[in-house]
Design a protein around this nucleic acid. Sequence first.
DNA 1: ATGAAAGCGCTAACAA
DNA 2: TTGTTAGCGCTTTCAT
Lengths: 335, 335
Amino acid sequence: MSTIKDVAKKARVAPSTVSYVLTNSKKITEETRQRVIRAVKELNYVPNGVARSMKSRNTYLIGLLLSDVAHHLSFAIAKGVDEVAFKANYNVIFCNTHNESERESQYIRLLEERQVQGIIVASRRTEELTHTYLKSRQIPIVYANRYEPGESVSCVLVDNEAGGYAATKHLVDLGHRKIGFISGPSGRSSSRDRQRGYEQALHEARIPVDRELIRLGEYSVESGYKAMQQLLELRPTAVFAANDNMAIGAVNCIVESGWRVPEDISVVGYDNSIQSTFVHPALTTVDVPLPQVGEVAARILLDEISGRSATPQSIRVKCNLIVRGSSGPVSQSKG
Amino acid sequence: MSTIKDVAKKARVAPSTVSYVLTNSKKITEETRQRVIRAVKELNYVPNGVARSMKSRNTYLIGLLLSDVAHHLSFAIAKGVDEVAFKANYNVIFCNTHNESERESQYIRLLEERQVQGIIVASRRTEELTHTYLKSRQIPIVYANRYEPGESVSCVLVDNEAGGYAATKHLVDLGHRKIGFISGPSGRSSSRDRQRGYEQALHEARIPVDRELIRLGEYSVESGYKAMQQLLELRPTAVFAANDNMAIGAVNCIVESGWRVPEDISVVGYDNSIQSTFVHPALTTVDVPLPQVGEVAARILLDEISGRSATPQSIRVKCNLIVRGSSGPVSQSKG
DNA sequence: ATGAAAGCGCTAACAA
DNA sequence: TTGTTAGCGCTTTCAT
């Protein structure tokens, strides 16, 4: 590996001159510039970024904390983060924490030693420590797709309330008035927000919120199935589930009970998961633009790194309703 | 940020002594060791990895080239790579090439400047240049889940032939003798190998390979459907598709034609994709252990980096047959 | 317009 | 056992 000195020698200039040429940081006569360029080519010289970082004190490196509980979600965020980082000449260090606090703190330590200039946390809640620690270390941090109570840190979230509203409004617009809701595990903000949107859409349509029509699920197909069994007794004409898997469970239950989707009961899910397109009928659902979450998070982080933005900001990315076969107008016989 | 000098001053020792303590690289009296440890704690000292890399000439960094054509595949590999890397104190730089050669070479350049100690390529074939370039740069490289002709480089592949064999053998064992095969796009080695396994299983069972029973698909649901339409005329009792999506298309076609799966026709897919569990009946399929591919690739790379292994090796990871509802014994009426 | 030299934070050979 | 010192490859101030 040749160094800047080798290039300098070959071009018969001082190392500093090579540096000036390579970074365009000073006026250099065209002739010497050419000599340097030629020497660089002949030696296949590639500058040593480690040495450069050492001097300049910035590494152009950011850390990305992910978990592997949901593969495709993590990758989608990572893709968005890398997209923005790459364009700004940053690179992303991939950290799969498994949602284990032990591992999370080990990664944090490694990242800190590496002098990363910022960290994006897209793993689920683990150590509260992490947050305060990074704050004390003055390392810029942005949470992606993770709600962080308190206003002292930037986070990029999905607008689940608007998504829940859109899903429910869609059903209302189709003439439904008796619309069930299957929630995720209690305490999950994603589900809570979707439910809030559901209730808001009902309010707007002057449909009273019936607590009986709201059932607790836990994001699994089975839990959706069970919740639907209970809901069926109340004869809703439509159901909105807080995620696709529960919606699929609901559809299974409806079909096995002898009803049709969407003719008898419409079903809407959430997530626009792969499986939502493979069931029959394909699910009407709400798409969560995770790459965009990653992009926005990276943009905020880079702004904080460069000092362009000092105050933490909280951004919500819009979700899009995807209408497919599982939702339709309320049937006349029941309307 | 405090430096090693600050710690040295506070502990009233020389910087080198601090270094010795921190790296356990020399005998130090317990007393001074404690003084150093205490100073480190009080100052919240974290060593600067950039400076350390500068001296030691190793960065403990590897690059991972991925593409986003199939999210979950890429993430699965990345997870495996990171698992092994993390345990060896390495970190992984995430590079999403989009399978664009332009971007790939930009990443290569960035990684080279960063002095990464090795690169794992899990993106699809793009620039032939990349390979020869990295070779010339003496940067260790391992291909993951990507076939690389020539023996001059390590690669970790999935044993698709054994997988295809297992899938077909499973059908043979169930009594089937007229087994169709739906291939992927011609030229894709993954499909070719699966087909080879299919043919081998037939040979072993002394079932002649009937070219009519082999149909060209292109890995999409629709192509599986179309291929099945043609196959149906030949009345096979079972079909093995080179991936799950085509298998799902085949099932759709079979059911719409009035036959039942698996009672009339058994179907086996490949990939163990999410959707394979969401169709009815759930697909019998072949699981591709991509995290393991990533792990093995990382292990080989680290071996090459440390000089433990010099000769390129080619490893094939075993796939596992997952038996679900879409395959069953050949029906008596037809047998 | 170019060169000389200091120094980023650390490690390691050598000295004491 | 501990300290002194040189130097990794680069950038940048200051001098020429």
